[in-house]
Design a protein around this nucleic acid. Sequence first.
DNA 1: CGGCCTCATGTAAGCGCTTACGGTAACCGC
DNA 2: GCGGTTACCGTAAGCGCTTACATGAGGCCG
Lengths: 336, 336
Amino acid sequence: MSARPTIYDVARLAGVSTATVSRALNGTGQIAPPTRAAIEAAVEQLGYRANTIARSLVTKSTQTIALLLPDIANPFYAALVSGIQQHALSHGYTMLLCTTEGEAEREEQYLSLLRAQQVDGALVDGLRLPPDRIAGFVRDGFPIVCLDRDVDSDSIPLVQVDNRLGGRLATEHLIGLGHSRIGHVTGALDLGISEERLAGYSEALAAAGMPADPRLVAEGRFTEESGYEGVRALLEAAPDVTAVFAANDLSALGVLNALAESGRRVPGDVSVVGFDDLRLSAFTTPPLTTIKQPAAEIAQLATELLIGLTRGEPAGKVRHVLEPTLVVRESTAEPA
Amino acid sequence: MSARPTIYDVARLAGVSTATVSRALNGTGQIAPPTRAAIEAAVEQLGYRANTIARSLVTKSTQTIALLLPDIANPFYAALVSGIQQHALSHGYTMLLCTTEGEAEREEQYLSLLRAQQVDGALVDGLRLPPDRIAGFVRDGFPIVCLDRDVDSDSIPLVQVDNRLGGRLATEHLIGLGHSRIGHVTGALDLGISEERLAGYSEALAAAGMPADPRLVAEGRFTEESGYEGVRALLEAAPDVTAVFAANDLSALGVLNALAESGRRVPGDVSVVGFDDLRLSAFTTPPLTTIKQPAAEIAQLATELLIGLTRGEPAGKVRHVLEPTLVVRESTAEPA
DNA sequence: CGGCCTCATGTAAGCGCTTACGGTAACCGC
DNA sequence: GCGGTTACCGTAAGCGCTTACATGAGGCCG
C-alpha cells in the first residue's frame, strides 16, 4: 500500500526536473545519455510506473477502445473479441468490453458513459440504436466503427462481411446438390444482417427459378434454441424439406438437434448449412457445412481503422466489405 | 468536436463555485434546493458530463475492474464474462477484458499495466502465474480475486466450484450405470482444476474398487480438438472403453465427434459426460450429460467480493467453494 | 572574440476535478 | 442581545502528469 512513486520521486533521485524525466520516458526531445541512464536507474530502483490517469488528463487520450456487443455468448463474437483485443494490445491500446443485451437504451447509455470516460473510440456490433444517433456521436468527435451492420450513414466507417453473398453461397450449394425444397431459419429480423442473409437465400432461389414459399422460412434469433424451434415449425409447415440453411452456426446446432430428435438423418434425409464457421462447427455431429466469416480479418481491419481514427487519420474508404466463403463438411449431401 | 463543457462552465452558468457544483453532482454536503435547481439547469443546458479521468486522478479510483482470462473462445468463460459484466455495471463499475493466452509473462505484464492504469482490482481465472507473484500484487494493495484456481495463498480470495467433487459426480454416474471401463480425457494438466477433476475421477474409481488403469486416461487441453485426439488415443490404448468423462464440454464435443467418426454410437456403444454445462451442450447430438458449474453464481459472488475489496471492505471468508451438479441428458446409458 | 545556432534542461502553467478549511448568515436558547 | 450551532457556500490546494517557453552552455564562423 506504500504510496506509489511519482515522477517527482524519480526526478529527485535522478537529480533532474520532472520535465526531463517525462521527456526521457516518452522519447520526446533529446536527452543526454548520462542523464537518460540516471533516470533509468532511478526508475528501476523505485519501481516507477507512470500513472496513466494523470497522463490521460493532459493528453486527453486514454489509449483505450471499447467494444459494444449484444452478448458474448455467441462464439463468433468471442472470436471477434479475441482478435480485436490482440490487435488493440499490439498498438498499445486496452479494450473495454460492453454487452448491451440488444437494448438500444443500454447502447446509448454506454456510448455516452464511454465518452465521459474518455475512451478514445468504439467498435460496435449488432447495434439496434438508430444510425442517426450513432452518427451524432461521430459528429461530436467520438470515433466509431461499425461491424457487421448496415448503417447507411456515410459518416460511420463500416467493416463487414457480404452477408447477402453468404446467403446466396449457402443456398446455391444446396441447389447445386439437387435440393429443391430448401428451408431457412433466419436470424433476428430487426438486425440488418439477418435480412441480408435472407435476401441472399431468396435471390439464389429466384435465380434457379424456384418459387418463394413462405412456409419454408421460419424466424429465428441466432440462438441454439431458436434454431431448434425454427426447424420444428418448418417440419410442420413443410414436411417435405430436404435441406435447411440456418442463419448462423449456433442456430444450426439447434437445427441438427431438432432433426435428430425427429428421427431424420443428416445429411441422409435433410442437409444443413450454417453461417459463421465457429471453431466448434467442425466438431458437430455431423461436422457442419457452413459459410465462413473471416473473423480474424474483420477484427484486424476494424481495430486498425478505429485506432487510425482516434489518431486523427482520415477514414479513407468508409465501407469495407469482406467476402465469405463456403466450407463444405458432412452435413450436406444430395437429396435421397 | 467543440470542447466539452467543464465544471467551470457549469459553475459560471449557475452562478456558483465549482465546489458547489461538485457537491451537488456527487450528493455530498448540503445544497439549498434553489441552488441545486440552478445547477441542474446549467448541466442540462450545457449537456455537461463529468470527466471521469479528472475525477479518478483525485479520487484514485476508476470504478473499473479487470478480468484476466486465458482466452474467450471457451463459452464457459464467455458466460462468466457476461455475468461479471452485468454485476459490475449494476455497481457502477466498467469492465476491462484481458486475454492472456495462458502465458504467465503476459499475465504479469497485464497485471502491472492494469495497476498503472489505476484499475481498482482484478478478477483472474486460469492463471499460470505462480501464486506468490499474484500475492505480491495483493500485498501492494491491488485487490485480486481468483476464479477457478487453486492458489494456496491465504491472502487471495478464491471463488470456485468443487472440481474434485465434479469429477467424482461424473464418474459415479457412469459407475452407477454399470460401466467399468471408464476413460478420462483431462484438461490442461498445468492447471489445478484439471488435476482436481482427474483426482475426482480416480477417487470414484477407487471407491468402487476399480483399478486405476493409465491406458484409460488421455491428456487433453480443454479444446474440441484435444478431445478428439484424446479419444482416438483412448480407443487405441483401450478399445474396450464403454464410457468417457471429458474434462469440459468443449472437449466432449471432440469426443462425440471422434466417436461418431469411428462408427461408435453414443450412448449405445460409448457413454460420454462432460463438464461445464454450456448452453450449447443441450443441443449436441445426442444432448450431453454433464456437470453443471453455477456460472452465474460464480460471477456474482466474485464480482461482489472484488468490489467489496476495492471499497476497502475486509475479505471475510477467503475461500468460496460452490457445488457442481450432475445434469443427465442423453449421452449416457447403461453399457450394452 | 562577439553573434548565432543547437542541444539539453529547467520553470511553471494547467488538464478537470475533489475536498479540507474557513467564512458568513440565519437561527437557536437563554 | 449574545455565544454557539447549523446550513450553505467559496477559496484554493493539489492529484501526477505533459509541454510551451525560457534559459544556459557550448560550438562554430567570420
